[in-house]
């Protein structure tokens, strides 16, 4: 096996001879020209991280926190795996990769393994569509899932492995900017599930606090979506909706009072504020999952 760098050296040497041969037999005068080095100076060093960065929690952690806050399992609230065929453009595929990841975490944590298995199937399918098939290749994840279907802990470890492999694959292939798109889908779905349970099951003080706590992440998701490397994607509509959610939330009386009081413990919205926030989340979620 030849090292890539040796290959490069051999290629460079061969190119040198080839270019030399093209020049003919007679030595030519070397013309000195001014070289514009601006572009060279502006080269992005992939081994230089931004001065300000952030870490977003995994879908499994978000689902786990919601569960600890009292979130119940509501059958039918997740996005149906049957919808996967609707997602034909890349953006919808990426967003719903995130949506289905959140759904899978929700099912697995609530011991709904058969549902979780269906989500693993659609996540694998979408990964293939968005250029991440390698994350799921050469590993019979479905067999591993089936072998451990009764063991919630093993299935959770399988989910962590998938998350880690996705993270590594995106870093190795300079696709980290896309993770904000996946995360936007996962965040919206997590919030949607939380809002649904809050609205339908009542007496959920912890859950209400968790919904507001998850709002803290939103600013960095929007920042990630605005990464110039995502410029080719039609993200305007989702950024607009997320910014609307953010500005509506920031304008709530409860939120303003909370930030004015440094000793305030947990942020709790009024019923009317929860309703307004919930309505915006549901609208956005509808746009993401409805193809």
């Amino acid at each position: 096996m030849i090292k890539p760098s040796i290959k490069i050296a051999v290629f460079a040497l061969a190119s040198t001879f080839f270019l030399g041969a093209c020049g003919g037999g007679e030595p030519e005068d070397v013309n000195l020209v001014d070289v514009d080095t601006t572009e060279e100076d502006m080269d992005v060093d992939i081994f230089e991280s931004p001065d300000v960065d952030y870490h977003l929690p995994s879908p499994l952690q978000v689902a786990s926190i919601f569960k600890k806050s009292g979130l119940a399992f509501n059958s039918g609230v997740t996005n149906s795996p049957d919808n996967v065929g609707k997602y034909t453009d890349e953006l919808k595929q990426m967003l719903n990769f995130g949506v289905y990841s959140a759904d899978m975490a929700y099912c697995v944590l609530n011991e709904q393994s058969n549902e979780g298995r269906k989500y693993l199937g659609v996540i694998t399918k979408l990964a293939g569509e968005i250029g991440m098939e390698a994350v799921f290749a050469n590993e019979d994840l479905m067999d591993r899932f089936d072998a451990n279907i009764e063991d919630k802990d093993s299935i959770e470890i399988l989910m962590i492995d998938i998350h880690e492999r996705t993270e590594e694959y995106m870093e190795e292939n300079d696709m980290q900017h896309n993770s904000a798109i996946h995360f936007a889908g996962a965040w919206t779905e997590g919030m949607y599930i939380g809002v649904y349970d809050y609205e339908h099951n009542g007496d959920k003080e912890g859950l209400g606090a968790q919904i507001t706590e998850q709002m803290a992440i939103l600013g960095n998701i929007i920042k990630g979506l605005k990464d110039p490397k995502n410029a080719g994607m039609d993200l305007g509509w989702i950024i607009t909706d997320l910014e609307k959610i953010q500005s509506t939330f920031d304008g709530f009386k409860s939120v303003v009072s909370y930030y004015e009081d440094e000793t305030a413990e947990e942020l709790m919205l009024s019923e009317e504020e929860y309703k307004k926030l919930g309505s915006l989340i549901k609208d956005l979620r509808g746009k993401i999952v409805n193809g």
């Binding site: 001065d51 300000v52 960065d53 952030y54 977003l56 926190i65 706590e213």
Partner: peptide, 12 residues
Amino acid sequence: VKEVEIYLFNNT
């Protein structure tokens, strides 16, 4: 100086 923001959620 390079800075990384990390979220800490309730009960965790």
